[in-house]
């Protein structure tokens, strides 16, 4: 059984715009999946269905075979979502306070919240910043803080929505390393991006969205040759392999 599955997922906005249509996708535990597509292809809307932030006009999302509408809080614990703009995710005045937001929502006892916060910050290497203001962190560190906030909920799947936007080179490297570490530790990763050259080498599967539909789904090596049909830049030059598509040395 797939860990995460969408069936005929469709979302139509009230003004009639079709954001996504008929998306069928199965993700198995432990996968590293890259979802690519140009701006406006419906990637973000799709991601926001995976933990029930948006409710589909048609179709459904299944987690471990159960529809998520039955247990939305459960879905939000299992599927962590890292938003494109890390600024808008910050709800705490200090780093520790921000990470505590999730476990406090789950109404964990105060001492347990403290432990979870400590562990999550240690996991992403931000322990020395506990009392710092999140706004004083660098771009890469802000993304890592967002990851820590999600780790505090102990998720199985982590969805990254354009995690490299607005980051400088060291920032991208920092975040990429973190994502790979999470994958190695057994998290299932869904990474939404249009910057294939930064990360595709590490993915086991490439899915392409175009005009709200899922148009390609397969091994990166096979799908990559067709990306230019869908408004994405072909990141490979003559003779290069998919394995070269990473910003890690």
């Amino acid at each position: 059984m797939a860990l995460l599955e969408t069936e005929d997922l469709t979302h139509v906005f009230p003004d009639g715009t079709v954001a996504i249509e008929g998306i069928n996708l199965k993700v198995n535990a432990g996968e590293f999946l890259v979802i690519a597509g140009p701006n406006g292809s419906g990637k973000t809307v799709f991601a926001r269905h995976l933990n029930g932030l948006l409710r589909p006009t048609r179709g459904r999302v299944l987690l471990d075979g159960e529809p998520i509408s039955k247990d939305l809080i459960g879905a939000r614990k299992k599927v962590g979502l890292v938003f494109q703009n890390p600024e808008s995710q910050i709800v705490g005045q200090t780093v520790a306070e921000d990470v505590a937001f999730g476990p406090e929502n789950l109404n964990l006892p105060a001492d347990q919240v403290a432990t979870v916060v400590e562990e999550s910050l240690a996991a992403v290497g931000l322990s020395r910043f506990v009392t710092r203001s999140p706004h004083a962190l660098s771009g890469g560190e802000k993304r890592k803080l967002a990851i820590a906030g999600i780790l505090a909920m102990n998720p199985k799947i982590i969805v990254f929505d354009e995690p490299f936007t607005g980051l400088d080179y060291p920032g991208v490297v920092q975040v990429l390393k973190e994502i790979l570490r999470l994958h190695k530790n057994g998290h299932t990763i869904l990474l939404i991006t249009h910057e294939l050259e930064k990360v595709l080498a590490h993915a086991g599967r490439l899915v392409i969205m175009h005009g709200g539909r899922l148009v390609e789904d397969g091994k990166p090596e096979t799908v990559i040759s067709r990306v230019e049909n869908y408004g994405l830049r072909m990141p490979l030059r003559e003779g290069e392999k998919v394995g070269s598509l990473t910003w890690l040395k």
Partner: peptide, 20 residues
Amino acid sequence: DEIAYAMEARGYSEVRTRAT
């Protein structure tokens, strides 16, 4: 809008851990 989504994604609840 974005903050509301982000808070909801992290399971915002008004029944929450009480401060000591």
